[in-house]
Design a protein around this nucleic acid. Structure first.
Lengths: 212, 212
DNA sequence: TCCTTTCGGATAGTAGAACTATCTACTGTA
DNA sequence: TACAGTAGATAGTTCTACTATCCGAAAGGA
């Protein structure tokens, strides 16, 4: 049951055989154990990895190259547990970091990080990502007011506490790492979906007149 | 100053002329006012629209087809203001709705919506998007616990209140609509970037031993 | 043992998205 | 009148994520 060939791996995962071969080539999936020149055996670990890859691409929307990057950190040998989470999370691209921010936006992003006591190292790519988003607000003629930015930051601190709490239950280190990756990448999609629903609700609450 | 030809529009927006022509073909940008068979004039409105398009694609990561969809709602004539925001927000794809959820996940998503009193219409695509994300958590072997889901929902309600508050300052209806679009699409990227930073901070706080 | 099926690995081809380049006919301006 | 600039059309490019074929070899049933 636990040992299978590629056809069964394909059937159980729902991923076509040629796509599995593609993932093998791209290094998203470890090669099976070769029993002869043209026979390899795959196990439950391959099946789980395949599910992870599909979740990151389909739900998380990560490009294949980014998935490889992230999985390299999942697979990396861990010498110490010290701030390992931080380094793994650094490897996950902030989704939409295109568009170069200007000095103005970068300074504002760094100021927010400082004011909230998020003393991350200043070359964190997420700071630049934040600046790029602020630049987007400004360039479209809808600059984000300071008050709102702070309130978003407060809400997000609450989110981050939940993020870290979800990892508490787990004992195994490998599981914690994978849980952090899943929680971070799928979490963005989760928050986006929940946000749409909460926006609709809040919008309806404030609408003058009747319900709906 | 306000009236220009395509070369100046390109220079001021930073978007190459062939790309502007491509956006014109795709209907992301209104055609300029034709003064003869091969001369058109563009104005400040075109410049702002171009900035909006680039923000939605580069920062928000929306595909061109989705941008066209969204802008159709921005441009639509508004007969009434009633729950107009809700309908505009519906048009924005929840980013990563691939991967079909199963009955189990759909039921859980609907249950959450009901429990929190988010009485949206049950065919809201965001509900299905939420279910798809929950399916991703489950299939990777990291199912999201009920407690955590509820805590995310609470945080997101706070976010939605900020979202709606950012629109209060504005008088003009067109500006409100555009602000809602920008706030929703760029907001996802904003929250993702802030979340990475807050995660790093929270992770460092909980790490045993020294700082960093 | 023979024979059909399946396999691993390599190479090549495909579909869609987002541009980018070229072409033609025309035109405002120096 | 020469010429750089323009609108609109069509065709080509680049990148990503697959998908299809091929080959030689091994597996598995009759």
């Amino acid at each position: 049951m636990g040992v299978m060939r590629i056809a069964e791996l394909s059937e159980r995962s729902g991923v076509p055989v040629p796509t599995i071969k593609y993932y093998l080539r791209e290094g998203l999936l470890h090669r099976g154990e070769l029993t002869s020149r043209n026979q390899a055996r795959y196990g439950e670990a391959h099946l789980r990895r395949l599910s992870l890859v599909r979740a990151l691409t389909d739900v998380g929307g990560l490009p294949v190259a980014a998935v490889r990057e992230v999985l390299a950190h999942v697979d990396a040998p861990r010498s110490s547990t010290h701030n390992l989470l931080g380094r793994v999370l650094d490897a996950i691209p902030p989704a939409g970091q295109d568009g170069s921010p200007e000095e103005e936006d970068l300074a504002r992003a760094q100021e927010l990080v400082r004011d909230r006591g998020w003393n991350c190292h200043p070359d964190d790519p997420a700071v630049e990502g934040l600046a790029a988003v602020l630049a987007g607000y400004r360039r479209t003629g809808h600059p984000l007011g300071e008050e709102y930015l702070v309130r978003y930051a407060e809400a997000v601190e609450q989110v981050a506490r939940v993020d870290l709490d979800t990892l508490r239950d787990t004992e195994e280190l490998d599981e914690i790492i994978e849980g952090a990756v899943v929680g971070t990448v799928l979490g963005d999609a989760l928050l986006a979906a929940l946000r749409r629903l909460a926006q609709s609700r809040e919008s309806a609450l404030r609408a003058p007149g009747r319900e709906n």
